[in-house]
Design a protein around this nucleic acid. Structure first.
Length: 311
DNA sequence: CTTATGACCTGATAGC
DNA sequence: TGCTATCAGGTCATAA
């Protein structure tokens, strides 16, 4: 698992290494940690080392050179940097993306795969590093272009997902609920980790088809998604703060996953051996006892006979 | 239209 | 020891 490898030390004043594959909580933690270093500052120089990680205009201006950063936003797993003149630059961390803030004159410990960097008027440098290059950057001249190109196809943010939207979007979907939760057009921010965790929390089998879920299922699922993400944001934030404040230690935080990454172990709730298989091409772990294919008390629907024509 | 699948990419790890 | 095979997964293009 790459989560350990992502937590190596660094000579920067701080590093923003997500403890896990970046999903919504990790991106939100990065966003919050970057804010004090970026907001109000001017990009004095932008440098692109790999043009193919950028979608859109790759000019210095498009890469925010000379621009003053006003806000850092996030929708799902997508981070966006907004400037006073209205330009927008997005960063998606993909599988292995990192955003590093370096003090003047320092270099990252691992200086490979550095694809883009921004020198700030503070002297600090912001660096985008992404070994696997599943992540990337996009540039937009204004807010409406950014919205049309990047936000229009994204569902509402998973941190504030409500039951009504979930039910409306999925009630007629003929696919496993887990596959639907991974679909960023339905809701933005849930990946493989939090999909499995949320489904475990509400006792829904990840292979169950959306059409088999009722309004109460969607309501409890929406509650669980918000809850598990909010708790991860809080924990991830403290982890990053620990790292910044501590003397170089990586921080002791490790989120307690109930099922994710626990293949071959037993359910933390009932101690039944967990099951593992691929759903939507992703490793999926669940408890066959806590997450039955049929909810308790529900019997298979009887076959319906054709109505007899009445004379 | 909806849903499914392979490709992309590199680092870690297991096994020989 | 060094080599090879396998696995991880977010998103996109393409297929069914």
């Amino acid at each position: 698992m790459s989560e350990q490898s992502n937590r190596k030390g660094c000579t920067s004043i701080f590093t923003l290494y997500p403890s896990f594959v970046p999903e919504l909580p990790e991106v939100e933690s990065v966003r919050r940690s970057l804010e004090p270093h970026l907001l109000g500052h001017i990009v004095t120089r932008s440098t692109l080392h790999r043009a193919d990680i950028v979608e859109g205009d790759t000019s210095a201006l498009a890469l925010l050179e000379g621009e003053r950063i006003t806000t850092l936003q996030r929708r799902g797993k997508l981070l966006s940097i907004h400037t006073k003149s209205g330009r927008v630059l997005t960063v998606h961390l993909g599988m292995s993306g990192q955003l590093l803030v370096l003090a003047s004159g320092t270099a990252p410990k691992n200086a490979t795969h550095l694809h883009a960097e921004w020198l700030l008027d503070s002297g600090q440098r912001l660096i985008f590093r992404d070994p696997r290059r599943f992540g990337g950057i996009s540039t937009h001249a204004n807010e409406s272009d950014f919205h049309a190109a990047r936000l229009a196809d994204l569902g509402p943010d998973a941190l504030t997902i409500d039951a009504a939207h979930l039910a409306a979007a999925l009630a007629k979907a003929k696919r496993p609920i887990k596959a639907a939760l991974l679909d960023q057009r339905i809701l933005a921010g849930v990946g493989n980790i939090y999909a499995d965790e949320s489904l475990f929390m509400v006792g829904i089998n990840p292979a169950r088809l959306c059409t088999g879920l009722n309004a109460q299922d969607f309501a409890r699922l929406a509650d669980a998604i918000r809850d598990v993400l909010a708790r991860a944001v809080a924990a991830g934030g403290s982890s990053l703060r620990d790292y910044v404040n501590a003397s170089g230690d990586e921080g002791s935080y490790a989120l307690e996953h109930a099922v994710y990454g626990r293949s071959g172990q037993t359910c933390p709730r009932c101690h039944t051996p967990l099951k593992t298989r691929l759903i939507a091409q992703r490793t999926t772990v669940w408890c066959p006892s806590c997450q039955p294919m049929r909810p308790p008390g529900v019997k298979p629907a009887p076959h319906r006979r054709a109505a007899k024509p009445r004379p």
